[in-house]
Simulated scan of single mutants.
Amino acid sequence: MIMSQPPVPTDYAAGQLWRCNGREPGEQPTLLINLVETHPLGGRIFHITLDGLRVRHPGLPGGVMTRLAHAPVIEQTFERSGMVYIGPQAPAADYRKGYDEWRQAFDAGHAASFGVSVPTILEILERRLNGIPLDQP
């Protein structure tokens, strides 16, 4: 039986699941777009869930984070992350808590969104979780 690939969307929207670049060959994360917002100053902000991760996290059993329920990104993240469309999927149920925390901080002027690649987001996250300065090699 031949499985046909879903047509690749012409625009990014909520309910799309993508495979993207990881930091190493064994890390092949998926990126799910949960919500798209338009901000008057910042254009579109995409609220995503990343799964299939291998991020060192000393506070978790086993020391590895495999899922990031919420991250706010802009379209440049997609352009820099080697995105391959997988198909439609319902938004993740667990992204709202992180979204609500981000939204409160964003509205207060204390948060922004990422425009870097997914591998760079994962590197920033891992360094923060492990107390490694971002400017240290």
Rank of each mutant, 00 (worst) to 15 (best):
R127G: 11
A90L: 05
I48D: 01
P58Y: 00
M3D: 13
P91H: 02
L122S: 02
G59D: 13
A92W: 01
M65E: 09
L129C: 03
P91D: 03
E123M: 09
G82V: 05
S81G: 05
S117D: 05
D107Q: 09
L122C: 08
P6W: 03
P7L: 00
I45R: 02
V84L: 14
V73T: 01
P91T: 00
F114L: 05
D100C: 06
L129Y: 05
T49N: 02
I124A: 06
E126T: 07
G42S: 15
P119D: 01
P7E: 04
R54D: 12
A92S: 12
L60D: 11
P6Y: 02
R96H: 09
G52K: 06
Q16N: 01
T10E: 12
A14D: 01
T120D: 13
L68S: 00
E75D: 15
D107F: 07
I2L: 13
E101I: 15
Q76P: 13
P9E: 00
H39Y: 07
A92H: 10
A111W: 00
F114A: 08
S113G: 14
Q28I: 12
L134F: 10
E24R: 15
V118F: 06
Y85E: 03
M65F: 12
G131T: 00
P9T: 04
E123Q: 14
Y95A: 02
A93D: 07
D94Q: 10
I124P: 07
N130R: 00
N130P: 02
G115R: 09
F106G: 05
M83N: 05
W102E: 00
H47F: 01
H110Q: 14
V55A: 01
I132V: 13
I45H: 04
G22F: 07
I121W: 09
E123S: 14
N21P: 03
P7V: 11
A92Q: 08
G63N: 04
F114G: 09
L129T: 06
V55Q: 02
T49D: 04
P40T: 07
A90S: 07
L31V: 08
R54C: 10
P40H: 01
P7F: 00
V64N: 03
G26D: 10
E79F: 12
M65P: 07
I48S: 05
Q5V: 11
E27F: 00
H39E: 14
D51L: 06
R103V: 10
P58Q: 01
G22E: 04
A69R: 13
H39D: 15
P25G: 04
V55L: 01
A92V: 08
M83Q: 15
R23D: 01
V8N: 09
S117N: 06
N34Q: 03
G98V: 02
A111T: 05
A112W: 10
L68H: 03
R96G: 11
E101S: 13
M3Y: 11
H70M: 08
E24V: 15
V118I: 12
S4Q: 14
L35E: 13
I2P: 10
E75R: 14
E123C: 10
I74A: 15
E24L: 11
E79H: 12
H39F: 08
G109D: 08
H57D: 15
R54L: 11
Y12S: 10
G42N: 15
G87E: 02
G43M: 03
G42T: 14
E101V: 12
L32V: 03
G26R: 08
A69N: 13
N21R: 14
D51I: 07
M65K: 12
L32N: 00
R67T: 11
Q76C: 13
